[in-house]
């Protein structure tokens, strides 16, 4: 797997005023890396992720995945949205089957795969439930399983735990790390929570605002599973927070 962003710039024109949301973002994402993109709200981090996913077009610059330029959504890059992305008319297992159906695999194989990933997120007994019967955390687990089921090279996650309560979020972070270690996917994870980034990431890309630029890339080398209160974590947290505060 290789994912390369080269000089990505995104401009909007709103009421005649040109707005630069992202400017000159270049980044090499390493294979099997867990990369967090962190920044204050309005720094364009979601836009950046959507450009990588092929859901939006950059004004200039290129995204390459496995040496191929991304020109639109591709199952190579699976996106996990903040919330409400599950299809409410489909059961949990049918939601996971969605991407497999699109790929036209034989039905029996589709079902095997779907069950495997349902098991991976620990929701086997909820196969026949509908999304509205699940808690927010369970829904996001299904979204993760659905995305991984199409066997992407990269998982793009847009504040996937942002709408959850603190305890559920901590639990899902741990589970995500376990899934990441089992499946060895590359993960790009957008968040505005410094704690979340420090707990999860191999590297944290800190974005600045107006325009969104890469302010600094910070390595997090603490061993996993990390203690959220450990010294190294605290130091990195302080560093990141000071970077963000300088903004204001």
């Amino acid at each position: 797997m290789s994912l390369t962003l080269k000089e990505i710039t995104k401009r909007f024109t709103r009421r005649g005023v040109e707005l630069t949301v992202l400017e000159d973002i270049s980044l090499e994402v390493e294979d099997e890396e867990f990369l967090c993109i962190l920044g204050p709200s309005g720094c364009g981090k979601t836009t950046l992720l959507r450009i990588i996913a092929g859901l939006e077009v950059a004004t200039s610059g290129t995204v390459r995945v496995n040496e191929k330029e991304v020109s639109g959504p591709t199952p190579e890059l699976a996106m996990i949205f903040q919330e409400y992305s599950l299809f409410p008319w489909r059961t949990v297992i049918e939601n996971i089957l969605f991407g497999l159906e699109c790929r036209g695999l034989p039905q029996a194989e589709q079902m095997d795969q779907a069950k495997k990933y349902l098991d991976l997120v620990g929701l086997t007994e909820f196969a026949g439930s509908y999304p509205y019967e699940l808690s927010g955390g369970m829904r996001q687990r299904v979204a993760v399983a659905r995305a991984i089921a199409v066997n992407p090279s990269v998982l793009l996650m847009d504040e996937p735990f942002g709408a959850l309560d603190a305890q559920t979020r901590n639990m899902l972070q741990k589970e995500l790390l376990e899934i990441w270690q089992k499946t060895r996917k590359t993960i790009l994870f957008v968040t505005h929570s410094v704690d979340e980034a420090v707990f999860l990431a191999d590297r944290i890309v800190v974005l600045s605002r107006n325009p969104g630029r890469i302010r600094q890339i910070i390595d997090v080398t603490a061993d996993r599973p990390r203690d959220r209160t450990c010294n190294e974590c605290a130091l990195i947290r302080r560093e990141v927070l000071s970077l963000i505060e300088e903004e204001h």
């Binding site: 996913a53 859901l55 959504p73 199952p75 996106m79 409400y84 969605f98 991407g99 790929r103 995305a147």
Partner: peptide, 14 residues
Amino acid sequence: RKTWIEAATTLGAS
């Protein structure tokens, strides 16, 4: 919902 359509495209729907 726009998110449903976007989710579907990223999952490879034509």
